[in-house]
Amino acid sequence: MIRAAAVVAGLVASVAIAEACEPPSGFTPRGRLESAGVVVLFRTLPPVIALGRHFSVEAVVCGDGTPPALTRVDARMPEHRHGMNYRPTLASKGGGRYVADGLMFHMPGRWELSFDVEGGGRRTRLATDVVID
């Protein structure tokens, strides 16, 4: 569904991607990231990320032309110069939808949650801050 919408939008006008990337029904995004014609909508499961608890990230990816692929979801604490102690596994659910399992934030502070997206011979990293109290 989403992929079809993105492709159509791509044909009409690539600038319209932002509007064309709609969340599937029942998917209320926690955040929307956009860069270089790529849009990532994401939410977490559970919705509130708790310190020291594993969580999953669900993402919807759209972009210009051929639908881009999400290749990696990861997180780091830039100030502390370390990543997570767990490597998330990423599964494609079709239609530009993905689920990353096994993330865990083990320290309070600022985490940078990142999404690597590949398409049309380009790799784009979109990132957002999550502050754990």
């Binding site: 594993h54 370390h82 990543g83 102690n85 767990y86 490597r87 998330p88 596994t89 399992d101 096994g102 865990m104």
Partner: peptide, 13 residues
């Protein structure tokens, strides 16, 4: 088993 499935050693470990 989620922790065991995903745990990873890096050189920082």
């Amino acid at each position: 088993a989620v922790k065991t499935r995903h745990v990873e050693a890096t050189h920082a470990s």
